[in-house]
Design a protein around this nucleic acid. Structure first.
Length: 422
RNA sequence: GGAGGUGUGACAGAGUGGUCGAAUGUACCGGUCUUGAAAACCGGCGUACCGCAAGGUACCGGGGGUUCGAAUCCCUCCGCCUCCGCCA
């Protein structure tokens, strides 16, 4: 969430930036500012009241010590009114804070300057396109048919055992998943990311820290008995490693990565979007995360974008990079680059990676700070990116690399999967 | 799951209900010394809010309570440790 200081100091700029998302937050912002002002004056009043009663308490202590019991009792009678007053002030302050927080939580991150205004994916900017984007829809099979024919992914079996959107990978299909995961992890390691295997469930505090809660509650699977959530992405456990911590600036940037399955309810999805591997309730992903100093986070984002580029090139897939418009970005992002691979048989682009800089938006919720050169504690910047999400990569590999009825593995992948063709 | 213990500043670790925002050590910053460094010595060193400042207030795992006054007592939740039970 935005910091109060920022809101106080940059009111107009924030409103202007968020208008790029198609939002008019001027009312909320002004309400926050006025509530904050009121909160401060209540705070002042409360502080004064407490100061007074602290002074009396000290006096009582001294009187007791010097044996003047009666005088002490006398002073005690004066404290009752102060106490009632402070309780009352504290209550109204708390309710004010609660309503202020509700407003704060409802305001998304401000888009970076370079991000264009826009409402939907139609307004996203294509930054670059790589590789040849051939339409093979006549000559090649969509991945769901091919997967069935080669018997490497079983959607029906998944539907029986669990439900739609939970496929079984089988034989070379399973090996392909395992090989891709290892390929991505080793590339991440080469790029300096420390590997973690995080928990696959998280608590509500973590969900709040990275911004899944409260507003995206319905997107996650919730274990009611234990009040835990299945992770929708490794971003959540990985970034929350640093929740509530003060990191040394000499340790920045922190670069970590991890493979996890990801669980998403995807309520309301339908049609060709969910066909085959296009959208699943459970899928595998390798995630990279950076915790960076504010003045280097833009450069860090560029290195993450380059990293993902390298992966897609090694896989010999045609892809393009989009800079999302303000309205299509996630709630917490200041700038996001999406990577899409060309699905030759479906004749459309499939999103396989999303790389974002959240700046201080998550850090503020996470309370993750570092000590700057002047010894002052400052919020860090957090960034993350998929590197990569597997299902649509698999779909694109199957569709783009068909040759004589087989699927030919890209060279770089062969040592990881252990075969050349499917 | 049962019994007991424990949770303090970046870290380690003291703390009889009033003088504790908190000893001490390490780390860190500044200085003296040194050709330089180390060591030694001196000084500084939590966060947030209000205030021009002096200063005030809050925070000792979270929440609640007792009390004029709570790091210190009580309740509760959470984490960690030990023992027992169960178990991949």
């Amino acid at each position: 969430m935005l910091t109060l200081n920022h809101i106080r100091e940059e009111r107009d700029q924030i409103i202007k930036a968020l208008s790029k998302r198609g939002l008019d937050v001027s009312e909320s912002i002004d309400q926050i500012i006025s509530q904050d002002k009121e909160r401060r004056s209540l705070q002042k009043e409360l502080d004064d009241t407490l100061a007074e009663s602290n002074a009396l308490s000290r006096q009582i202590g001294e009187l007791m010590k010097s044996g003047k019991r009666n005088e002490a009792e006398e002073v005690k009678t004066q404290t009752a009114g102060l106490k009632a007053k402070s309780t009352e002030l504290k209550d109204s302050m708390q309710s004010l804070e609660a309503s202020m927080n509700e407003l704060l939580y409802s305001i998304p991150n401000t888009p970076a300057d370079i991000v264009v205004a826009g409402k939907s994916e139609e307004d996203n900017e294509v930054v670059s396109t790589h590789g040849e984007q051939v339409d093979l829809s006549d000559s090649c099979k969509p991945h769901w048919d091919l997967a069935k024919e080669k018997d490497i992914i079983d959607f029906d079996l998944g539907a029986k055992v669990t439900g739609a959107g939970f496929p079984f990978y089988k034989g070379k299909g399973a090996k392909l998943q395992r090989g891709l995961t290892r390929f991505f992890l080793e590339k991440a390691e080469e790029a300096g990311y420390l590997e973690y295997i995080p928990p696959h469930m998280i608590n509500a505090d973590s969900g709040f820290g990275t911004g899944q809660l409260p507003d995206k509650e319905g997107q996650m699977y919730h274990m009611e008995n234990d009040d835990l959530y299945m992770i929708p992405t490794a971003e959540v456990p990985l970034t929350n490693i640093y929740r509530g911590s003060l990191v040394n600036s000499s340790d920045l940037p922190i670069k970590i990565c991890g493979y996890t399955p990801c669980f998403r309810r995807e309520a309301g999805s339908y049609g060709k979007d969910v066909r085959g591997l296009n959208r699943l309730h459970q899928f595998d992903k390798v995630e990279i995360v950076q915790i960076a100093e504010p003045n280097t986070s833009d450069a860090a984002l560029d290195t993450m974008v380059d990293h993902v580029k390298g992966l897609l090139e090694a896989l010999e897939l045609p892809y393009r990079i989009l800079r999302l418009c303000a309205g299509d970005m996630g709630f917490t992002a200041a700038i996001t680059y999406d990577f899409e691979v060309w699905s030759a048989a479906q004749g459309r682009w499939l999103e396989v990676s999303s790389v974002s800089n959240f700046r201080t938006f998550q850090a503020n919720r996470l309370k993750c700070r570092y000590k700057d050169a002047d010894g002052k504690n400052q919020l860090v910047h957090t960034l993350n990116g998929s590197a990569l999400a597997l299902p649509r990569i698999v779909a694109a590999l199957l569709e783009n690399h068909q040759q004589d009825g087989d699927v030919v593995m890209p060279k770089a992948l062969v040592p990881f999967v252990g075969f050349e063709r499917i």
